[in-house]
Design a protein around this nucleic acid. Sequence first.
DNA 1: CAACGCTATGAACCATGGTTCATTTCTTTT
DNA 2: AAAAGAAATGAACCATGGTTCATAGCGTTG
Lengths: 218, 218
Amino acid sequence: MAYRQTDRVAARLAETRAGILDAARALVAEGGFAAVQMSEVARKAGVATGTLYRYFSSKEALCRELFREVSSREMGKLAEIAAGHGPASERLVEVLRTFAGRAVKGRRLAYALLAEPLDVNLAEERAFFRRTHADIFARILEDGIENGELPAIDVRIAAACIAGAIPTALIGPLAPQSHELDRNADRVVEEIVKFCLAGVGVTLTARRESNSERRTVA
Amino acid sequence: MAYRQTDRVAARLAETRAGILDAARALVAEGGFAAVQMSEVARKAGVATGTLYRYFSSKEALCRELFREVSSREMGKLAEIAAGHGPASERLVEVLRTFAGRAVKGRRLAYALLAEPLDVNLAEERAFFRRTHADIFARILEDGIENGELPAIDVRIAAACIAGAIPTALIGPLAPQSHELDRNADRVVEEIVKFCLAGVGVTLTARRESNSERRTVA
DNA sequence: CAACGCTATGAACCATGGTTCATTTCTTTT
DNA sequence: AAAAGAAATGAACCATGGTTCATAGCGTTG
């Protein structure tokens, strides 16, 4: 017996591993998953290319872990709100606002998670991510229908519509120009949320947030 | 002077060109644009790989032309309806039904056009395609608002929401299972359309199709 | 500090798939 | 039918980018 990993080493290894993920995350934030090349990750993390393979069995494994890490943060926020105990329609409004609001703020990341062309492996992770979103929406809708707050509709379908409408309206080719979004983020988010709420039969009554215009743009 | 293309040859060339596009289209219908490999296209078209490059300057050029050809057929249908002279809300219903209905029937193709991960070049073509969709929706909405049929909303945003909701709810990971879609296509389409209409403030009044429920369960 | 084995290295390797080009085959003209 | 292009061929070529592996460097133990 001549070697056993010591705590100090274990810590250093963990740090390297984290550093690699950090580097990859930074690349995603800059240029999406398309910008994650093993050689670049290595360079950015300050290790050799080969080293990456001591921590991750393949590029796919690295990207999957990264995707999960990043996306679970997002889902966590929404799940938390969804699990609250208020009326369903209020939780719904808040979830939608949060979803849309975070997507606008972190557009780059949101693009990578929701809209960027990915290869099939990562598309699987994304599918899981989106399904979870839809589940969150559907759950709230069910609550609302059960207790009569909302009209009865097919919650799976409505949830999918919402999960499609919000990202499409905020990122990608159908979204407003980026600088326009920066200027009007709140108004745009509010308009999208309004659409989704109306879609499930909720009409937004005036509230605190609506210092923003209620004028109906032509 | 020793050669000048004769009509017969020109016709044969045109035929070969069309054959190449056909082969590529068939591959798209089977496995999306991912299945379009130059060698496969050549095999299917019954020509040599090199021959493809006598007709198309690159794979990109071939795919773009194909994308345009296929997508313009779809857009044509919608544009036609949109240009009609009936009330905006009726045109809207019909456009949405047509869009969704065709997407369900030609799911494979719809996937390739709307949802499949594509590389950047083709993503440009798709962006154009989707923008055109959104324009069609937006146009009708504007009409409806102008003449008071519809409440005033931001038509660009609503159009983007619709253009996102429909494909998401019909194809990809959030869509119902394929066999379920086959069984319930009409009901699913109707439900999605209902969501979108409600989103822009139209409530579907009972019509021929609406033997389906309108009850609002408590 | 010697021996052993874990960790890191990065240039070489390999797979994929688009593109080229020397050669052959086919058409047209005289 | 021979000359001169045009068209077709498909194997070789090349670019990209992920993965491997022989080697060097470090840490741990006795």
